[in-house]
Design a protein around this nucleic acid. Structure first.
Lengths: 348, 348
DNA sequence: ATAATAATTGCACAATCATGCACTTATTTT
DNA sequence: AAAATAAGTGCATGATTGTGCAATTATTAT
């Protein structure tokens, strides 16, 4: 017999009305109840089909999306428009404009980890227009994410959040790293190392780009060498100076190219190595990731340009989807970055 | 005798009216029913040709998506409706119905690698209504993909295709593997191996799931052990029997859990180990990936259920986007699978 | 502690969906 | 040209889902 809402209601011993409201995104449903219903629906294999006739009239009402940027005010935003946070906005507002969505952009304090604190209380009460959903820019404390997700549909941009069921739009780490490495391999590099930093907060993109690096090694049939991978494993990390010493040592030992999971790591690397008389693009190859132009560098770094505008657009769009259909499988969208051919990937 | 709608109706024990409505994109047809009808039609070899003269104004507003299933007719389709190809149809049909898109489902020969061959010539010329875009199910020869992509917007389902700029919708390998491994780690496993098979065609999902495995090792701070990884590196592969010997050896040496990148690999593994007196879920833990229920197995495998319906839906949707040419950046969408707790991940 | 207020949930009824029957229209066959 | 076959459509109907309002429960303010 087919699964219907009644089955779910029976299983949870609640009324079918409540089940229906969960799927129709009705206000006034306890988030916990909704979660329980969705979990049971998945378990029983229920498929909710949006009603087809009615969904046109509904979209006429104005929605409001919050854009929360988790960053110190002076650090990121005020600095310049080059910061990722600012670069994402055009895409977001483009989508919002096209679809008559209001935006409410707020900067929140990264050090506030208590969702019940006045900082967030205020944020939520201040507005007359209720938020319908939230876009998250930069990493948030997980407690905050939990609190926000209970109240609103959320979509995260660029940064990802481990195992929690948060939708996320990001650059395609795998393709990016794969392209960079292919470029190196094409130039004759056979021993390619991975150089990162340890971050105080767990940086998921480091792991993701590292895993892309490993995957490419395997597919290109290049051997895995533990000693050419620096600062990925927690138990096997180096201090800043120590790390560079090790990198120097490995370079002398035969590593001809280094993959760095971020541009700023690569720029610093280049600077340090220069002090030791090693020139990037000549004595060794190096690539970054992010496509942030650096001032005061003579060389153009080979890197992957992150498609910020597209990410912003897709994120807003995904959130819009979630507003009308909250019972939807969590998804990650990875957009192709553009490889920027710099001068640092040259053959020896 | 020729195949007609009545045949399909009989086979599915529904009225012919319903079958007719499926092909004419009548509203008020359940997407599941429609998917079942399409599947049966494909199986029986029925091709729907729209009525001739009448469709001047009407059909022009309908777009047509081709769904190409690259599989041997008898192998996959006729077998049962459990095959991935068939399971994707309900989601595709759901989107198509909601958005007034016609579907044209075809099975193509995997061994035909020449796009200019009559096999494809026919496929393209047969129809009066031109395809507006193509959904690809199962891996196609790269020559065919190239040919198709030059002619139509394409989106691939479940399988991925390396570096080419093809949009793709798939299960979230990383989250799936991460959840499975976390489950193992929670149960006390500390030495987790990876066991795969070598495939004649490059299986991207093996690499992707392998890279997810490595990423999780790093994040959980478990050491990388080359000798616990079987049949991922081309230069370091074993024959079938040889591979199991090695796996046995490593298990005796201290590996307590094995991650397999696919259910069928895991089922075979269990069977072989059983012959050697090792019981899954007791003497060692093992997990698969795909959520395909296996007949004749006493134990339920711990695995990840692929959200076929959602994948189908999102793929159709992505293709629809590409048709209206709204977004140019190539993207990969990964949907969360559901971890199915079986009996094979137990602690020793 | 108790009243006032807000948040959830259930009931009853309304709306819509999905499908088969009967009939119409189009295309072949005889 | 009539008969036969195949396919499309209006309508009726039971199944399923959506919604206003009242009842219930939780929360907050006296």
């Amino acid at each position: 017999m087919r699964v219907n809402q009644q089955k779910i209601a029976n299983a949870l011993e609640i009324s079918r009305t409540t089940v229906s409201r969960c799927f129709t995104n009705h206000p006034g449903i306890n988030p916990d109840t909704r979660a329980a219903v969705f979990a049971m629906a998945t378990k029983l294999g229920y498929t909710y089909l949006e009603p087809r006739g009615t969904n046109k009239s509904k979209s006429s009402s104005f929605r409001t999306m919050a854009v929360l940027i988790c960053s110190d005010l002076d650090q990121d935003i005020t600095k310049d428009n080059q910061s990722p946070g600012m670069q994402l906005l055009p895409g977001i507002s483009e989508y919002a404009l096209l679809n008559h969505i209001k935006l409410d952009i707020k900067i929140v304090n990264p050090r506030e980890t208590n969702f019940k604190a006045s900082h967030y209380e205020q944020l939520l009460k201040e507005r007359k227009t209720q938020w319908d959903g939230v876009l998250l820019i930069y990493p948030f404390p997980s407690t905050i994410i939990g609190g926000l997700m209970r109240k609103f549909p959320c979509v995260s941009l660029v940064e990802q959040y481990g195992a929690s069921d948060l939708d996320c739009i990001d650059v395609d780490h795998h393709r990016g790293v794969s392209h960079l490495m292919q470029k190196l391999i094409d130039q004759g590099h056979r021993r390619i190392g991975f150089f990162s930093w340890r971050y105080s907060v767990e940086a998921l993109w480091v792991y993701r780009r590292y895993s892309a690096y490993i995957e490419k090694l395997a597919r290109a049939d290049l051997p895995y060498r533990q000693e050419d991978i620096l600062n990925v494993y927690a138990t096997d990390t180096y201090g800043l100076e120590e790390g560079y010493q090790k990198a120097l040592q490995q370079t002398r030992d035969g590593v001809t190219a280094w993959i760095c999971p971020a541009d700023h790591i690569a720029y610093d690397f280049i600077e340090v190595f220069q002090k030791h008389g090693l020139e990037s693009g000549k004595d060794y190859a190096i690539t970054g990731f992010d496509g942030i132009p650096q001032m005061g560098t003579s060389q153009k770094l080979t890197t992957v340009q992150i498609p910020y505008r597209q990410i912003g657009y897709q994120a807003a769009r995904r959130l819009d989807d979630l507003l009308s259909n909250r019972y939807s499988t969590t998804q990650h969208v990875y957009l192709n970055g553009t490889v920027i051919a710099g001068e640092t990937d040259t053959k020896l």
